[in-house]
């Protein structure tokens, strides 16, 4: 993700007979190529096929109807109107993901900076604590979240003592909370990785030159940890865009994200070609986002490569 120059000494050591053979990398690369490439290919192919009149699967007839159906609805009388349902779903997904990214970013920078300024032993412990949620299945964690924010959960009961009504489960707020909770570590870790390398003597130099605390943060610290911030944004925003567990379990399926609609088309709605078309659209939009980010990063001269 983040290009870091390794000290040449290490490279020299690795260049010795024990150097990792590219052959060892073939198998996992091949596995990844199959596991990502083939499903992707299937999705793309399916998106251009017709839905069978009965049951699931596809009918091997080429059509562009699936893509048309993303934006245009054909009425019974044959007239066509703009269909905003899927655009809205996509917008909802983007909107939730943007909020998630911004909130995790704002929360992560102070945490990452704080961890990075501890001594080495404490740092390792704190990083381990940040990764602690990974030890528990995301499903279980989301269930746990549901219990906590339920109307009759601990928060609800506590606020009930003061006659404050608390009802956020099965609302967009709950979905976003769930997203923030799950993706927070993915933001903290890359920013921490950048912050740890930050030379705090630069902050001292900035103070010495007359900068106040916030100016030091804005003009010296933030630019230095920018590669980590960009990695963090990519690591949070992209998977958040494709999330469906949170809106399914915490949002109560009322406010769908695009992944929920895709899942539904492959499940209950039994419309694989349309689900595929929606998936392709999501992939294209994600890719677009990544390219824009990379373009912005390159413009500023950061050595960040996301693709």
């Amino acid at each position: 993700m983040t290009a870091v120059t390794t000290p040449p000494k290490k490279q020299a050591q690795r260049g010795q007979p024990g150097q990792s053979s590219p052959k060892l990398a073939y198998l996992p690369i091949l596995f990844l190529a199959f596991a990502i490439g083939i499903p992707l290919l299937i999705i793309v192919v399916y998106s251009f096929l017709e839905k069978p009149s009965q049951g699931t699967g596809v009918k091997w007839v080429f059509t562009l109807e699936n893509y048309k159906a993303l934006f245009i609805q054909e009425k019974l009388d044959g007239t066509t109107v703009l269909d905003t349902r899927y655009i809205k779903v996509l917008w909802t997904s983007f909107y939730y993901s943007i909020i998630t990214t911004v909130v995790t970013l704002v929360l992560s920078i102070p945490v990452a900076m704080w961890i990075a300024t501890r001594d080495a032993r404490k740092r390792n412990l704190l990083v381990a604590l940040v990764t602690l949620p990974f030890w528990i299945s995301i499903l279980i964690r989301t269930y746990g979240m549901r219990q906590i924010i339920a109307d009759e959960g601990p928060i609800g009961k506590f606020l009930g003592l003061f006659d404050i009504s608390f009802s956020i489960l099965y609302t967009p707020t709950a979905t976003i909370l769930g997203l923030i909770y799950v993706f927070l570590p993915f933001m903290i870790l890359p920013i921490y990785a950048s912050a740890e390398r930050f030379d705090f003597r630069l902050a001292e130099a900035a103070y010495d030159l007359g900068a106040k605390r916030m100016t030091v943060v804005r003009r010296v610290i933030l630019p230095s940890i920018r590669p980590g911030v960009i990695s963090g944004i990519a690591l949070v925003f992209i998977p958040a865009l494709g999330s469906f567990l949170q809106s399914d379990m915490l949002g109560g399926g009322k406010t769908n994200m695009v992944a929920n609609v895709i899942a539904n088309n492959f499940g209950q709605a039994r419309n694989w070609p349309f689900g595929s078309a929606l998936a392709v659209l999501l992939i294209v939009l994600t890719l677009l986002f990544v390219l824009i980010m990379q373009g912005a990063a390159k413009k500023r001269g950061d050595k960040v490569e996301l693709v």
Binding site: D199, R201, L202, A205, D208, L209
Partner: peptide
């Protein structure tokens, strides 16, 4: 930042 003194650091500390 309120002192009219400036430092040249051993590590240079250039941004």
């Amino acid at each position: 930042y309120d002192r009219p003194v400036n430092t040249v650091f051993q590590s240079y500390a250039l941004f």
